[in-house]
Nucleic acid binder design. Sequence first.
DNA 1: TCTTGTCATTAAATCGATTTAACGATACAG
DNA 2: CTGTATCGTTAAATCGATTTAATGACAAGA
Lengths: 353, 353
Amino acid sequence: MNDGGKRPGRPPTIRDVAELASVAPATVSNVLTGRRPVAEDRKQRVLAAVAQLGYRPNHLAASLRRQETRTIGIVIPDLTNPFFAALVHRIEELAAEADYQILLMSSNEDTEQEAHRVEVLLARQTDGLIIAPARDEVSAFAASAADLPPTVLVDRGFGLAGFDTIAADNYDAARRGCQHLLSLGHTDIVLVVSDTSLANIADRIAGYRDALSEAGLADRARVVVGGFTVDGCRGAIEQELRRADRPTAIFSAAYIATLGAIKAIRALDLAFPDNVSLLSFDDSDWMTALRPYVSAVAQPVEEMAAESWRLLQQRLTGAAGDVARVRLPCSLQVRESTRPPSAAKPKRRFGST
Amino acid sequence: MNDGGKRPGRPPTIRDVAELASVAPATVSNVLTGRRPVAEDRKQRVLAAVAQLGYRPNHLAASLRRQETRTIGIVIPDLTNPFFAALVHRIEELAAEADYQILLMSSNEDTEQEAHRVEVLLARQTDGLIIAPARDEVSAFAASAADLPPTVLVDRGFGLAGFDTIAADNYDAARRGCQHLLSLGHTDIVLVVSDTSLANIADRIAGYRDALSEAGLADRARVVVGGFTVDGCRGAIEQELRRADRPTAIFSAAYIATLGAIKAIRALDLAFPDNVSLLSFDDSDWMTALRPYVSAVAQPVEEMAAESWRLLQQRLTGAAGDVARVRLPCSLQVRESTRPPSAAKPKRRFGST
DNA sequence: TCTTGTCATTAAATCGATTTAACGATACAG
DNA sequence: CTGTATCGTTAAATCGATTTAATGACAAGA
């Protein structure tokens, strides 16, 4: 409200505060940062001046001098994917508690955009980076780990040299999911994935295949690629469901694949689990809102976020040792959409519409 | 890879580049920013030096000098709400195109946290702010509009003095939604909201009430408050559904309320639209994945994001005039969950589980 | 030949903080 | 009473860029 008559139109600087309190700028700094002791009376004068001027330290200047921005960059493929939204949400929360802020960028699953965004973050002197890479190669976003500030890779790029990496145990999760379906008696299980080029997905495929092999059904593996859109997945799944040897179970190995699967089943006037069992990778509130509850493999998003932040913070404070590789276990939520295959395969129609 | 022998361990500065190219730092700046002309031969020398050293301008230093950070702060109540996730996603995309980066913060629906986050953003010299406030008063996050850089308020705080504000036309949307239900013959329509203190919600309630009044059913209005959690909403709705005079239609006026409503209906072994019609505020992919498709009032998220960015950018470039107030229309998606009330009110059980 | 003007170039000032190093005052040991 | 240590204080240097203002070279005009 009252600018004390200093420098009209511009926010007050540490110099203004110093002048008003009749001390040196360094003293103001010492009061505010608490780095060095300041006599009580001067401290009060400074505090009063700060209050009177409504002084707010320019974080930019401090960052430049300190060579530390307390900013971390986060790059994710797509914020509209609830998995990444939840991840970012939690990381932001944890970072804020430690007085770190986040610069958020989406790569839109595109390596070129990703590389550009990382470049921008580097220019902005972010203290650290948390990246969920679009691809599993470092070359996509940096020449090498050495070119980057402390960086942790989450969800993708697991095990890349020089980085702390965190991912869900996709292999184990897919294997257990498939075993669950096998234990129900399914032998025709289609795995629906978005894209095969990601290690994540490759792991899920491997887990699925291994579970089948262990059951002596290696030759029954059927993997369908639906792409990164709901409609793409839906189309691919519809095609499978139209075949004469229709699968008795669908294991949708991605968030969009699940949406696509549900829509496909519905589009063909089929029902789960009556006509096909459905198992989803990625859990959400909707799984228990849908009519028969949808069984799902739940990724430990919160833990992935927590672990990402923990590892990054360790590096930031120099308390880190060798690069860490953390695999976090998924949990299998058996609900209603997975049941033994019905021998008759009845085709049920709906009353509505 | 090769640091040219300059300053080991520290990234090269403009001085290093200048020295290597045998020019003044100012010349390097002029080459890189293109603000003043530089002779071709020197320009080439500079560019070569930049490439050799792997020089990357320190954005912090530039920001400090230019008094412009090309950073905008975004504060939203909750990133796990798909509405806000989509909003942020789109704004980030648009901002990136204009070479602006975003600092993202969640207020967690809490005004204290919100005020603190805004304070942090101010200290960081963000050029502009986009806020979806936790409450509709300015006092929650600033003494007044004058204390803030160019700021637009989106979704909430519509019409607050001194700000560009953008919101969906909640009143009209709720009114039309209710009219739709009325036109189907419903007279017992319960409106479920999260919280009544928000203007947004008040508008929805008003639209709902007005639609009822216009139909001469003012006294039939029933508004249920479920809070900000799915379970809270579910509980509140279950209670309504258990009453003897069970409503024939539920209008869930928020994302969580819809989830709660669906879960409540299911928990009581009821079905929509057979036992109760269901109309959702906020659309999503899931609405057409659920068994009977869920009718919904769709908020224009993309447009809200676009308009937010457009207005902010106008202010940033000084091209703006009076504060703008933009109401964007919602669209009513009539699908399968809304139907005429059945006279018999049959209680249908599911076969499964 | 001597201005006058133009233009690329650069030395120096600047942005707003923090940190270093120097300083002066006081307290204490010898 | 002198010499040393301690401690709060501050002038000045610093972070790494941009911008201002001054410089010098050269061309055109008188």
